[in-house]
Design a binder for these strands. Sequence first.
RNA 1: GCCGGGGUGGCGGAACGGUAGACGCGGAGGACUUAAAAUCCUCUUGGCGAGAGUCAGUGUGGGUUCGAAUCCCACCCCCGGCACCA
Length: 820
Amino acid sequence: MERYEPEQVERKWQAVWEREDAFLVLNPTLPIKPEDADKSYVLEMLPYPSGELHMGHVLNYTLGDVVTHVRRRRGFRVLRPMGYDAFGLPAENAAIREGGHPRLITERNIAAIREQMKRMGWAVDWSREVSTADPRYYRWTQWLFLRFLERGLAYRKEALVKWCPNDQTVLANEQVIDGRCERCGAEVEAKSLEQWFFRITAYADALLDEMDLLESWPERVLTMQRNWIGRSEGAEAIFRIEELDIDLPVFTTRPDTLFGATFFVLAPEHPLVPQLVEGTEHEAAVFDYVRHTAARSAVERVDPDQEKTGVLTGRYATNPVNGEQIPVWVADYVLMDYGTGAIMAVPAHDERDYAFAKKFGPPIRTVVAPAEGDPAEEGAFVEHTEGEQLVDSGPFTGMRSPEAKKAIVEWLEANHLGRPAVGYRLRDWLLSRQRYWGAPIPVVYCEDECGIVPVPDEDLPVLLPEVDDYVPKGRSPLAAAEDWVRTTCPSCGGPARRETDTMDTFVDSSWYFLRYTDPENDEAPFGTEIANYWLPVNQYIGGIEHAILHLLYARFFTKVMQEMGLVDFREPFARLFNQGMIYRHGAKMAKSKGNVVPPDEMISHYGADATRLYILFMAPADEDKEWQDTGIEGTSRFLARLWRLAHEVAERGDPGSPDDSPLVRTTHATIQKVTDDIERRFQFNTPVAALMDLLNRAQHAKDDPGQAAAVRFATETIVSLVQPYAPHMAEELWERLGHERLWEESWPEPDPAQLERDTFTLVVQVNGKVRDKVEVPTGLSEDELVARATELPKVRAHLDGKEIRKRIVVPGKLVNLVVG
RNA sequence: GCCGGGGUGGCGGAACGGUAGACGCGGAGGACUUAAAAUCCUCUUGGCGAGAGUCAGUGUGGGUUCGAAUCCCACCCCCGGCACCA
């Protein structure tokens, strides 16, 4: 028997799969027939082609691979594609650093990562490969942008935006973490710029409500999305500055506290601030404060532990419910981009207003009684008043706060002083980027009268121009391609200039899962009927880092495409699974931390099969896990033992069909467990343990001639069941055991009769404590089971002649005797 | 602060209200070998005990239950999200 040489076996089978198109899956012919119904779309988040596979990829794609293999062998038509999220900053930064074109760098990286993926042996349908940086792909990204534009869902506006001074480009809100750029960590700055946005806020409620349509998503992801959307219900109330004839609406979630408003605050960026103070004695101080605020960094400004600051405007606003005149302040604890950029301040019932009032002196007026037992100190901050009774609130005094909320909003509405309103934390998606390596935004600016003019569909794609310099200078590098920028207006034929910003790469990845269904289509981004066949994705797998960004954007895109009639479903991903992160030496594996284990080294040393097995065996797939350098020895040894046993079994020839025996029954039980764990429980570590266990048993039985047939059956079953995890070795052994192609073999099914046992281990408890176990025949009555239990000497010792007050019998499992 | 997830041997973990610690790593001892590697066998939660055993034990404290790692309540700790969002 030759030694197990993973490299040789793996190279051999990878070549066979390629030659025989093993994992190619054809679309069904249209129209879809009922016999095509058993489909499954298994998708992993597409990689950014950095050129180097890391362990996170290995886990992600091995998970998808196991699901894919099992479903294929269970008779499903399985779509399992692969592609590259190929636009983006790393390639561009590499081009700046090392020279060369981002396109060439990306192509080189794609070639390298594809090679590594093939070395892992993943069962990908390579005929559907997609790169988002390919003009045949981004043509349709641009096409979709134009459809959004037509529907008013893409728009351009001047706004205060988040600017990364390092990457020299704007960022979406979702790309700012704790005031820093999520890519490079630089502190973001605020900048007023004209930019392109997607109107995702119009879908805030749909994104929340349609979570109900999802089959199975992790609770934490849903929570993160809910937090991000940040819906809160309340009311808009109109305060008025009489002397200037200005209405200042505010958003509040506590209209029941309107009578407690003792001052009013505007955000420093509020557009009406200048008008309020112009020509007054407060002008200088207010302008000074506004300038001071603008100079503060974003990180500093959002720190809630900062002492409150603010300045008086000298103006007074009228409280709509009682006509009271309250002073108007400007303070930076009020944010321009939430609500209306202005608030009514109720210091008795809002912590922030309370802190401000304590420092600057406005009165603190309790209008909702504290809950019973809480101190009712004069002028104190009163927490937890939801549901309590209103005091000093005019006609609403005495109502409980929930009714008061309704009553006050109704009163406001009837008097045209307010209305019910909903606030969201979610902002529109800023999609333009001042960088080179992305899809150009397909519009031109007419220099005559036409304004913003979309590039006609037939002129797509708008190809990226060639430029010499990718260095970001605060404007898009595309602007340097003057010949490209200068164009004619599609509408009037006059002179026009092209938009030079490119799209956020998250636009590219918001629809790629549809392109896979129809990757060669030249007429449309994809065929509607075939997309409706394959989607929604049955199982999506990827990292938690995309919980908000990609997953929220893709859901938004799908809803819009559904409304456009491009697809007939509202949610793209029915089931989502997030794999955990991989740590080593207590930190997330990262080049910068020097704790990376390169998959390539693992493959060279132990083989792809052992690496695949270990990454799934080491811990539950959804948990963060610590990489143990010696851990892979276990799966490597397991494969070597399987190799030896299978060879011994093969050499002995055919022993006929096995008789009933414990080993045969355990084998059937293992089939059951492995299938159930993978398909129902989505658990991947325990099947490996079950296979190791079965191998141990088979090995112990192998020298018993009476069990030759059972050992062969067990061994062949292990080979068959391990195929999704270790496909190369499984094929090799399957062949050596005298069979053909294992990937074409149907998935084993347990014989129900063999899952039935004729004896079982009865656990006997006394007062809930295990005292003994005994092997008994199945099918005994409760009385018989109790009789067997009470016969046992150890049990008798604990019964100690006492009276049995109660007996619990769980058939097939245990007897619990309660004595008193 | 609010929301979500989690806390089990030396380590990774198993246990889908019913035998806590499967499977694996590491460790100890042994077999084979001139030796090593590889392989195989035995042991490996803690206390007491020569042993058969026995008591304790799943972050802490309560509760529900015949029976709780698992369900409920309170608390502690760790991880993640949100947070001057009115």
